[in-house]
Amino acid sequence: MNETTNPPGHTPTPEDIDQHIEPHMMIETVPTKRKIDLVRKFKEEKLFAFGVTIVALAIFLAFFGPVISPYDPNFATGNVSVGPPNILDWPGLFIDTVFLGADPPHWFGTDNSGLDIFSRTISAPRTDLQIALIAALLSMAVGTILGLLAGFFKNFLTEILMRTSDLLQAFPVFITAMILVALSGRSTGNIVVALTIVYMPIFIRLTRAEVLGQMPRGYVEAARAVGNSEFAVAFRHVLPNSLVPSLIQLSTTVGFAILLTSGLSFVGAGVRPPTAEWGLMIALGAPQIILGEWWQSIFPGVAISLTIFGFAAVGHGLEEDYR
């Protein structure tokens, strides 16, 4: 009777609930799920579904944005500072373009030099997302390994590693990134390197903290008692159990990296014009705002805002389940 099993996904019985309330009274919330079911989660949680949709769209555009864009994102059309067509005319224009072979309209208008804003907005993920994803993944990969080493093997070397990481964290993030990019050359590769350096300490710290939390766990000692080498204990047992905080942090970091990439271009220390990049587009449109030419900045801005929110929503959804 006492030995009831809890198969994955089953709904808790009074015992489950009270077990979590009674013996360890520090528990924060009543855990409701044991294993995540992404498909069900997508169906049931609107926010999560919204986030996933946005992220999927952004990734799609990163691959195919420049391919499907109606105009060359980096080639001036000759129509300078044209506003977007009236929203009521869009269905008609859409039919004209697709079925009647008319020249595609400038859905989002054009900027001062005649670049098509719609084409640039949907082509930008190739730059923004590429930089952000690579930088976030790189900093996570290197950061978790270093964090694991620092937490698992406490010695002079890892002590130096942690002090360096501390020092890196005391740097003003934005200015450090600006220095790294501006002084080493404003190329995509250099931005990736700068972002990786700036975000790595977070992963080192998170993983190390998690590893330190895992070290007193019984399964670590059990792994030693079974006869594993220290290296096997660290990488086969502790590492897989210490990844969750980093994985949650990953989506936040991608969001922040997009923000920083566009922020750097906005202040003139990011990618060079005329690259199709959201921050750069906003910067180019900024002086026009007080002249009433709102379309130059608003569309790329909405794109950034939604993308980052999408990543945050996905991250939050996963975080809720893993906690």
């Binding site: 566009s262 906005f266 906003i282 900024a286 608003i298």
Partner: peptide
């Protein structure tokens, strides 16, 4: 969740557009 990370430079511009222009 939303305001946690948003492009403040863009929002600034939008505020200028609305509240000034």
């Amino acid at each position: 969740l939303f305001a946690g990370s948003q492009p403040e430079f863009w929002w600034g511009l939008m505020f200028v557009f609305v509240f000034f222009f």
